[in-house]
């Protein structure tokens, strides 16, 4: 099956660029490695352009869109030649799609905005692969990160009356040995929210605690998500309170073999 895909990719001469968000690059390199290794395992020719930094979201969401212009331009410079830009972050992909109107809409910018994909979305809907051949014998709770869920529509959300689906859920379900646990609140925000995490510290912490508790109450050993930013926030609470939970980005689980 994998050989077939490789042929197909070569056939279409698909140029895939990997975008590793700034905080993953610096603080969670293992998520970047897992993403790259996973894509390579799926026989995708991935290029990691050097000189990439950030999508600009931290400034823009704080109300300083103008200060994000440099980051946006840098992003476009690095990625405008790719057919697909894949990133292990729903939130960053969403930011490129939704908020890059802060820079002039040249053909390059439009192309970048159209071609950016969150990792699960890319694997499932572009590569058309469901089973990536991973094994992960643990109880896992899926935290449906909001920007991916309600921004990119990587799954159905509980507010809307639409058919149910979840890209991350579909991929995870095929992982051998995994047990996906059900949460009491299937898609509530974790409270990270970028600078919200410090501007509204009290609420941010409370939301995070509640999210962690929901996973604990339902017997999860691991919380996974399409966004490491949510997980960083939850992990910060888990380690501070020494709770029996781990956080792993979905790429790390999909890249697991034992």
């Amino acid at each position: 099956m994998f050989i077939e895909i490789k042929k197909k990719l070569k056939l279409y001469n698909m140029k895939v660029g990997l975008f590793i968000p700034c905080y993953i690059n610096q603080l969670y390199p293992q998520v970047g490695k897992a993403t790259l290794e996973l894509l390579e395992k799926l026989n995708v020719d991935v290029v990691y352009p050097s000189g990439q930094t950030c999508c600009g979201q931290p400034m823009a969401n704080s109300g300083y869109e103008n200060e994000s212009v440099g980051a946006c331009n840098n992003f476009v410079k690095n990625f405008n030649e790719f057919d697909y830009i894949v990133t292990p972050s729903g939130s960053c992909a969403y930011h490129v799609k939704k908020h890059f109107d802060v820079i002039p809409q040249t053909d390059e910018v439009t192309k970048v905005r159209n071609n950016v994909y969150e990792l699960c979305d890319f694997i499932l809907n572009v590569l058309k692969i469901k089973d990536v051949g991973a094994r992960f014998p643990h109880k896992v709770g899926i935290h449906k990160s909001c920007h991916g869920l309600r921004g990119l529509r990587l799954g159905s959300c509980s507010e809307k009356v639409t058919p149910e689906y979840s890209y991350i859920g579909e991929l995870l379900a095929e992982v051998s040995g995994v047990e996906i646990i059900t949460l009491n609140r299937e898609d509530e925000c974790c409270g990270f929210g970028g600078t919200f995490a410090v501007v509204e510290e009290a609420i941010s912490v409370k939301m995070g605690k509640d999210r962690v508790q929901d996973h604990l109450d339902n017997g999860a050993e691991v919380i996974t998500a399409t966004d490491t930013s949510c997980l960083m926030h939850l992990e910060g609470l888990i380690t501070r309170h020494m709770q029996p939970l781990k956080v792993l980005h979905i790429a790390e689980i999909l890249n697991s073999v034992n």
């Binding site: 690059n25 610096q26 970047g32 912490v205 910060g236 501070r240």
Partner: peptide
């Protein structure tokens, strides 16, 4: 560090993804 009031920060890895890739 308002973040650190109730949350730990991740421990800083030796290598960034960039460095690892190079």
């Amino acid at each position: 560090n308002v973040w650190g009031k109730e949350r730990d920060l991740p421990s800083g890895p030796v290598e960034s993804f960039d460095e690892w890739y190079k």
